[in-house]
Design a protein around this nucleic acid. Sequence first.
DNA 1: GGGCCCGCAGGG
DNA 2: CCCTGCGGGCCC
Length: 750
Amino acid sequence: MATQLPCDGDGKCMKCGKKPLEEEKILCKMCVAPWHVECLLTRPESMESVVQWECPDCSDLAGGESAAPMVSGAAGELIAAIRAIEADSTLSEQEKARRRQQLMSGGSAVSGGGGGAEEREEKAKDDNEILAILGENMKCSFCMQLPDRPVTTPCGHNFCLKCFEKWVGQGKKTCAKCRELIPAKMASQPRINSSLVFAIRMARTSKTTSVDAPRVIQYVHNEDLPDTAFTTERAVRAGKANAKSGRIFVTIPHDHLGPITPEYDPVRKMGVLVGDCWEDRLACRQWGAHFPHVSGIAGQSDYGAQSVVLSGGYEDDEDHGEWFLYTGSGGRDLSGNKRTNKQQSSDQKFTSANQALRLSCKKGYPVRVIRSHKEKRSNYAPETGVRYDGVYRIEKCWRKKGIQGFVVCRYLFVRCDNSPAPWTSDERGDRPRALPDVPELKKAIDLTERKESPHWDFDEKEGSWKWKKPPPPSRSAKEKGAGKARSRKDSKAKILKGLFMNWAADWVLYLSTFCFPNEELHFAEFSCLLCRKVLTLPITTPCAHNFCKSCLDGAFGGQKFVRERHTGGRFLRTQKNVMKCPACTMDLSEFLQNAQVNRELMGAIESLMRKFEEEQKAMDGDEEENSGAPAPNDDEYAAAASEDEENTMSDSEETESKSVKSENETGKPGKPNTVNGDGGDKLEHSNTENGDGGDKMELSAATKRGRKRKNAAASGAGERTRGRKAQRAADEGDVSPSSPLSVRSDNEPE
DNA sequence: GGGCCCGCAGGG
DNA sequence: CCCTGCGGGCCC
């Protein structure tokens, strides 16, 4: 087994030497050491396994098969001690973490503790301790509070964004705490440190939740998935410049306004949560947050706008987090087959997308807002990828002369979401706020303000934002169903290729497409809400959530149903231990005392499973028996070439049945294609890596007429210029000249 | 890091 | 059908 190494004290990966971002690191649950995910031979497969992840050193030691060479005897003892903490079922996860850390930093492990009487107080004390520790280490040196919108200097000191900006604004160039020089870039473009936001928020939540019901339970989940690599089983699809979109996971109609709530989310059953991140626009699209692939505005001029992306495409944009000024689209010269152009060349008007935004302004509709890492001038943009930041209302819109001298449409967006923004450690969402002062309004032309009362508004009684007037009915005929979006025309192999059958969502998609096309299959019935895989020994709670028995056992590992209490000599009545359903707030302690496996459900699943296996076997036959080792780059699951409905001429003959050969050329040094090293004996969750080698991406077979632009001819050869990659491939003799790109088919290449 | 290119998706 | 578009990979 190749040696694997963690990150060193400076945060540098000892394997590749790079300094991974926070989100590219994973912490071992045993020794709390950070590891660079990219350099791991085997990556965790799911969120759950991220939380439960053990580094190669610790797991090697545990397995006892081959002790990792760099773990000394002393370290072995340390790990044993950590294991003891880990095994102590009387400790909360938090307490375990605390003790692990104590151990790592040289303190001695606190012995188990009997879990009895003062548990609650003890816990509260711990939580305060966490807050205290947090406060010590990262108080803003200016206001001496836990930083609001924390920014972190390279020297590792934390400040409120506002305080920091003030400091820098005074011309200071060194860290207020250690006098280390602040790099100019950081000084001018500080970014919110989201890990810190998370840490502060967690500390605050744990403090409040120890007393009462968790208010921000959604945030726990939410923050569970900011890392693009692990957010969802399929969201990680490596984006390709010209790729087709993957399947849409949510069931909202295309013109859905407002937040995407759980009922539209058969996969996670959570909806799209504020703070959800994706690697790119394609993945974001798959969750319905913003459908257009390139366009920054989703909307229809006579209906309203669904969403916008802040991506730095227009220099007039101005981002203040809770509110921002957005620029309309258009006014640019896109000739020469361009999709974007930094240069304005004409005035923008309130038409199409711009008009859609204006309509949403007038009606007071909520607009979903996505921020992209490409927006470099904003403090609030994510470091990587794109992020859903909740809904905003457009309070005013107008036109003005933009920076480049042409008139642009302007929109004042103000946040109005029930969940706090990703950059605050608030526990609550927005309250109605006064409109900001916008100096440029003085020079506004065509100012539009809302006259009627807004459809989406704050309900004082409920203390939350909601539809005060019903949203306009969807006009979108087809709803994107997670299961139904696929047509029967798709080859089974093609679908299967992208799926991982342990995941109930994928499994249900497969079943509902091929085995039970006429049945309504739901995700929930088959998936464990904890492991998200197909239920084994399912238990259905009174609140109608399903879990594997083992997962549920694990969730409440060893907790007692009642607590004995006594003060001094007096015994008090035993107190019920509250055991909340992992999916909602219902107390399951009663139920769990006699929880029974849902035999009927199990039977149903088993028979479905049988059916599935039959289908699969049949298919394996068709596919000439090639399902052995899951080679990361295998092409055998290639798909029927064209499924383009819009292609009226069935020119599939033109799409030669040729697969681009992939001898696993390992790509260029910079980009490891196949991380999965040894395939191992179990199926890898390999869709992240495997489809990734550019040539192997499935692309639409027929290339349509090239784009007919006014002066398209000026762009080059009279006939459509072939893509460079195709050109290169052709040069290598891999692709016949008539076939544009890697066309794939069910057949093996001759 | 800037420029070029182009399949896709959606509006009208 | 035609037009537009705050992408993203790749080459220079």
